[in-house]
Each structure stands twice: as structure tokens, then as C-alpha cells.
Amino acid sequence: MNTVLSLKGISKRYGRIQALNNVSFDVPPGCVFGILGPNGSGKTTLLGIILDILKPTAGSFELMGQPPSADVRKGIGTLLETPNFFHYLSGERNLRINASIKGKGYGDIDAVLEKVNLHQRKKSKFSTYSLGMKQRLAIAAALLGNPDVLIFDEPTNGLDPVGIAEIRELIKKLASEGKTIIMASHLLDEVEKVCTHVAILKKGELLAAGHVDEVLVNEDIVEVSASDLNRLEQLLKNMNGFSGIQRHDNNVQLFYPMGTAKLDEVNQYCFNNGVVLNHLQLKKKSLESKFFELTGKVSDR
């Protein structure tokens, strides 16, 4: 199995609205894959298609290297959009339905309820649960049968800060167990904290996909200038520690992985080598601005 999920030109149209336009990307096994995008960008539509809830207008996809089928879905734990349970049944009885469809016994139910801190309320009706508890039950349902692949659509929706932190820990723990996690989110911060890979959607267009470090390059920029820019550039090229260098009209920019730029060292190095700087500044490029930069592209077209 080379890919857990491989999308090939998926498009979806609702009447005049193009919800997805020719989206293709691959999800490698063992990664935490974030699908990032603002509200209405097509994240849930995409997951709905993968799960046979929605029919694509065009395109195809493979799950676990096979054409999609119900049997493949049995091995995937999923939380799609909202917790979907019978209101008149208790949390435990609802999970029995999930377990019986997945072809798993009821033995797992207590354990997964324990994992999401819902064990004490397992006999209560779903309709009496708070929003956060409903979300936890949905995550518990996804964990049934210990699947190797998990799909979470906005997993921290409706949770309080403690709950959000718990779910993040849970996701990290699942990832460390070698599970593949596909997660849709509009929260950049969430993706940044847990994902290894990311695909960015905007109005149904795929803007970028790949490793988080490549897509959401998050770096420190050190801007330096001296009276002799050519000499400065030559000098800096021999210095270690930065990941990129760029010559501009009246300065040179050095790129560092986030948090590793040390201005005093740069200054010291230049001074020791006989170049006196007349400008030295650290510029932070936030993930946020990167995200807006990326998602802004489509609306500008």
C-alpha cells in the first residue's frame, strides 16, 4: 500500500456551485494529513465523497490502494461533520450499532468510551449530552475496532479548551502508534500543531498539498544591509546555519527555520570579517499570513 488515499481529479458540482474542482493529491501511510481551508472551501464535501455519502461529478479515488468499497470503509474510523447518532438511544447502545456494522464485537465499547472520558455517562441518552460530549462520542465511535486509518472532520468542534487539548493529545498519540489520520480543519493552529502533511483548499480549488514544512514554510527572515552589498552577500554565503539567502536591491535576506535565527551571531560574524552592518532586522512571517497569502490567491484571480 503506497497511499492510504489517492484522489484523481475529483470534482463536485451542486447546480451552479462548483464545490470541488479537479482536486488530486495523495495521502501517504503513517502521516497526519490536514485538509485545511476556510469555511465552505469543500473540505466536508471532499470527505463525503471519499465515504460514499456524496457522489462526485467527475474523477475517481482509491482507498488503501483499492477502489472504494464498504468493506474498506469498515477499517476506517470516521467522524464526519457532526456527531450522527440516534437521540433516543444511550451512548453505549449507539456504539453497538456502529460496532455491529463494522463487524466488530461489543468488547471495545467500554475501552473507547474510557479513552474519550465518556464512560460515566454511557447509559445516558444521546439527547442529554452536551455538544462536547456528543463530539467525544463521535470520536469514540471512530476509534471502535482500533482502525489503522482515521478520518476526522473538525474533530475539536464544540469542545472546551481542555477538551481540545485532550483531543489533540489523543490524535498525537494515535499518530505515534503509526495510524494514518486525515483531518479536516479550518483552524490553522490545529493543523500546525498536529499535522505532518497538509492540503489547502479554497473555494473547491486545491492550492497546495504536501509536507507541512514545505507548504506552510514557517521561517525567520533576517534582513541585513551594508554599504557594499556584494561583499556582504559573498561573506554571508560562507556562513552556516541559514536555509536560504536572497539578494534584494538594498538588502540581503537570510532565511532560518523558525526560532533559530540569532541576530547577534550574524552581527558578530560580519564584524569579525570586516563588514560593518548598517541594517539588521528580524522579520517573523506568521503561519497566519502564510495562510492568507495562500488562500488569498484564488480570490484575487
Binding site: 470503509r73 469498515k74 450522527n84 440516534f86 456502529n98
Partner: peptide
């Protein structure tokens, strides 16, 4: 009921065929 609770979706997601 299935539509109201969206459990028809969950059933398919969990691995039932349509």
C-alpha cells in the same frame, strides 16, 4: 429519523453499502 439524525450517513461511513 435516519435523515434527521444523519445516522444513514454514519451507517454508510461505518461500512454498510447503500
Amino acid at each position: 429519523n435516519e435523515y434527521s439524525y444523519k445516522t444513514h450517513r454514519q451507517n454508510l461511513i461505518d461500512g454498510l453499502t447503500r
